[in-house]
Nucleic acid binder design. Structure first.
Lengths: 254, 254
DNA sequence: AGACTACCTGCAGAAACGTGCAACATCGCG
DNA sequence: CGCGATGTTGCACGTTTCTGCAGGTAGTCT
C-alpha cells in the first residue's frame, strides 16, 4: 500500500464513517499507530481533517456534510452529554433524538447500563451496538439525509406505539422568547411526535445553541421538563432560569 | 517494447487500478525501476498523473477515490457486489438486506443512480447517505445487535407496506440441497418477510458461502430468481446450475 | 490520585528518489 | 559505408522520505 493511497483511504473513511480511530486503522492496515498518526497530523495540517484524541474527524463541510457536524466540538459537548446520560435511569425507556449532541449522550452511557433506547437515528443505533444490556428500538421511515434520521408520516406513525420515561431532544436554537427551534419543518414535526410519547422531555443545548434561533419552532419552553447545558455565567442561562426553566448540567451550579 | 508504448501502458494501468507501484511495474516489464520512474516523472510533468512516494496515482482524484474504496473490500466480495449492483435498475425500488456483502453492494452503486432503497440495516443507510438521488426507506423495529439489523414483529409489520422490484438477500450458507441458510431464526424470518415484498429475490454468495450450511433455512432455492456469486469452476456452482438455479456473476461465464 | 492510553520527539534502518555517467542502439548526413 | 548526434537504458552515488521503536509528556478514565 502506497503512503499516498493510505491517506486517501483515511479521508474516504472519514467521509463514510464521520470519524476515524487511529488504533483501529493501524490494526486494519497492519502498520503502526505512529504512521497513522503521522498521516492524520499531515492531513490536519493541510486542513483536510481535524485531530481529536484517539483519531480524527472530518473537517471540510463539502466533503462530509453530516459527518462533519457530528463531532464539531467533541470536548464542549461531552459535558452536556455526561449530564444528560444521567437522566436515563437503569431499567427505564428513553427516546434519543438524532444529532451530534444526542450521539455524544449515547456514547456517554455507562457500558453496563440496562435500559431501552428508542431512536429514529441509525447513527445512534451504531453507537449503542456495543452496549450489551441496552435494548434498541429503531423507528423506521423515510430517511432525511441532511441529518440522517427518519421522519415523515411513516416515522410519526411508528412512534405512536412508544411510551417512554424521558425524551432527550436535540435542537439548534434555545431562546428565552422563541423557545426551542430547529432548521427543518419535517424534523420539527418528528421531534414533537417523539416528545408526545415521553413523560418528560429534556432539551440538550451545548453552549453555541444558547440564544440562537432557527427557523422552525419545535416546542415552547413551557412544554419541557428542563434544559441540559454546559453554558455558565451566561445571560441566556440566567434569563431562562429567571423564567422558571429548569436548568441542568454545569449551569445548575451557577 | 517502445518507450511510448510503455507510457500508454502505465496510464492504462493507472486508470484501471487507480494506482501504480514503480517496483512492481519494473518487475513486470523486466526493466529497471529507474526507467519506470523516468516515465512517471515525464507523465507527471505533462499533468497526466501525480507522483507519490513508491509510484504514482491518476491525476484525476475521482478515479483514485474509487480505486481506494475498491481496495478496502475483499476481492471476493467486490465481484459479487459489482454484479449485484447492476440488478438495481435506475428508477426502481430495491430492498437491501443487512450484512457485509450487501454493504459492499451499497458502496458499489453508481454515485448518480436514482432509485429507492429499502433496508432494515442502519449500516446500509450510512453507506447511502452520500448518494444524492437515492431515496432511503429504513424499516424500524427491535435492533438485533449481532448483525445490526432490525427484526422482530414490528419490523415484519413495517415491511408489509413495501413493494419492490428486487430484494438482494445476504445469507451465510448456499447449498444445492439445503438451500439458503443463516445463523439466526429471527433473522431468517425477517429475510423471508422481505423476500415476500419483492418481485424477484437474488441471493448474494461470495465464494466462502458456497456449499456452506447454517442452522436456519431462509428460503428454498426454488423461491429465488437467482444467485450472484464470483465462484467459478466450482462443484457447488455446477450442481446449482444443473438443478436449474439461475447463476449470475462470474459463474455465469463458466 | 493512579493507571492507562494517546501523543510527540528523536533516532536508526530501509526503501525510494534524483543525478551524473557510461554503454548501447538508432538515426541522419556526408 | 563511416561518423557523430541523439536518445534510451542501467548502474552508482549521495540524498530524501518513510516507518517503527524508545522515551518522555500530556490527556483521559476510574
Amino acid at each position: 500500500m502506497l503512503a499516498a493511497e493510505r491517506r486517501d483511504l483515511l479521508l474516504a473513511r472519514l467521509r463514510s464513517d464521520g470519524k476515524l480511530v487511529a488504533k483501529d486503522l493501524a490494526a486494519e492496515l497492519g502498520l503502526s499507530e505512529d504512521s497513522i498518526r503521522r498521516d492524520l497530523r499531515e492531513l490536519a495540517a493541510a486542513g483536510l481533517c481535524e485531530r481529536v484524541y484517539g483519531g480524527a474527524v472530518p473537517a471540510s463541510p463539502a466533503l462530509a456534510d453530516y459527518a462533519t457536524r457530528r463531532d464539531v466540538e467533541p470536548t464542549s459537548k461531552r459535558g452536556v452529554a455526561k449530564h444528560a446520560a444521567r437522566l436515563i435511569r437503569p431499567g427505564s425507556i428513553a427516546i434519543l433524538d438524532g444529532g451530534t449532541t444526542t450521539l455524544a449522550v449515547a456514547r456517554a452511557l455507562p457500558r453496563d447500563l440496562e435500559c431501552t433506547v428508542v431512536t429514529h437515528s441509525p447513527t445512534i443505533v451504531s453507537a449503542l451496538l456495543d452496549r450489551p444490556r441496552v435494548e434498541i428500538i429503531l423507528i423506521g421511515g423515510r430517511v432525511f439525509k441532511h441529518s440522517a434520521v427518519t421522519c415523515g408520516a411513516a416515522a410519526v406513525e411508528a412512534a405512536r406505539g412508544i411510551s417512554a420515561e424521558v425524551f432527550l431532544l436535540g435542537v439548534t436554537g434555545v431562546h428565552p422568547i422563541h423557545g426551542l427551534t430547529t432548521g427543518d419543518a419535517e424534523e420539527a414535526a418528528m421531534k414533537r411526535a417523539l416528545a408526545r410519547r415521553a413523560a418528560d422531555t429534556y432539551a440538550l443545548a451545548s453552549v453555541e445553541k444558547l440564544g440562537a434561533v432557527s427557523r422552525f419552532e419545535v416546542l415552547p419552553l413551557s412544554d419541557i421538563a428542563g434544559i441540559v447545558t454546559d453554558g455558565h455565567d451566561n445571560d441566556v442561562v440566567n434569563e431562562l432560569s429567571a423564567r422558571g426553566v429548569n436548568m441542568l448540567g454545569r449551569a445548575a451550579r451557577a
